[in-house]
């Protein structure tokens, strides 16, 4: 039972492995999405305080979770790539960023569309909303920096530094924003979910979060495959691929 896991750290073998894994994750994402939406719209009861508007939670909370989780994962792989000079981990890191930014945008958007009927405004300078906005800026900064650098190895390493600096700063930023928010408590915004949230709501939310997770894996794998092809276009295995002798 000795599987050589390091084999898959080579871009070429990862390319084929990822290609075989993608269909399974697509199926998982679609099934989870259907179950999640079904529970969200047909099983979960109407919230007695917020009526039907709360059903935005089934995309809002998973999107917000994924946006934060993906940033940490991105910084982790970028850091590994910087520390051990493994090309594949840096490629994964840059493949994660667009999906992460998309979820951040989605969390902000749905937050606004939930806030309007509940709080009466599209935007409040709430600690969580503000931190999410700053997270969006961090993703944009990471992607623009990598896009501005032509040499891929320099882009990987520079991106890793800015991602790691961002990760160190996120807690500091979060607590300063939180503190700032309590000081400037304007119109009372108390959207703390009651602890006894209906189980169907919680289940729906968790399943939707899993679906978002599977979706992110699909996107990241696909994008990593393309980055591998782009960077290794002059290697022997890619030219074999061209001649159609691939597995």
């Amino acid at each position: 039972m000795t599987i050589n896991w390091f084999k898959y750290a080579s871009p070429a073998s990862f390319y084929f492995l990822a290609g075989r894994m993608i269909p399974f994750f697509i199926i998982a994402a679609v099934i989870l999405l259907i179950i999640g939406l079904y529970i969200g719209f047909f099983v979960a009861p109407t919230d007695f305080q917020q009526g039907e508007a709360y059903r935005i939670i089934f995309i809002h909370v998973p999107a917000a979770w994924m946006s934060m989780f993906l940033y940490v994962v991105m910084a982790f792989w970028a850091g590994i790539g910087l520390a051990f000079n493994t090309r594949l981990s840096s490629m994964v890191a840059s493949a994660i960023a667009p999906t992460g930014a998309m979820f951040t945008f989605l969390a902000l958007w749905t937050g606004a569309w939930w806030g309007k009927p509940m709080w009466g405004t599209w935007w409040v300078w709430d600690a969580r909303l503000t931190s999410e906005l700053i997270l969006f800026f961090l993703y944009i900064g990471f992607m623009s920096l990598q896009a501005a650098i032509d040499d891929p190895r320099r882009a990987d390493k520079a991106g890793a530094i800015i991602a790691l600096v961002g990760v160190v700063n996120i807690p500091i930023i979060y607590f300063s924003v939180q503190w700032w928010n309590t000081l400037h408590q304007g119109a009372s915004v108390s959207l703390v979910q009651s602890p006894k949230m209906a189980t169907a709501m919680l289940t729906g939310m968790l399943i939707m979060a899993l679906a978002a997770w599977m979706y992110s894996i699909v996107m990241v794998l696909m994008r990593t495959r393309m980055i591998i092809l782009e960077r290794e276009r002059h290697t022997a295995w890619v030219s074999e691929l061209k001649e159609g002798v691939s597995k």
Partner: peptide
């Protein structure tokens, strides 16, 4: 240091650095 010698480095540096300045601004 990260944007050294890049085209459009001046605008890029603001994108990278301004979010990190937020805690200093707040306090």
């Amino acid at each position: 240091a990260l944007t050294l010698g890049l085209r459009g480095g001046g605008v890029l540096v603001s994108l990278l650095v301004l979010p990190l300045y937020i805690p200093v601004l707040i306090f």
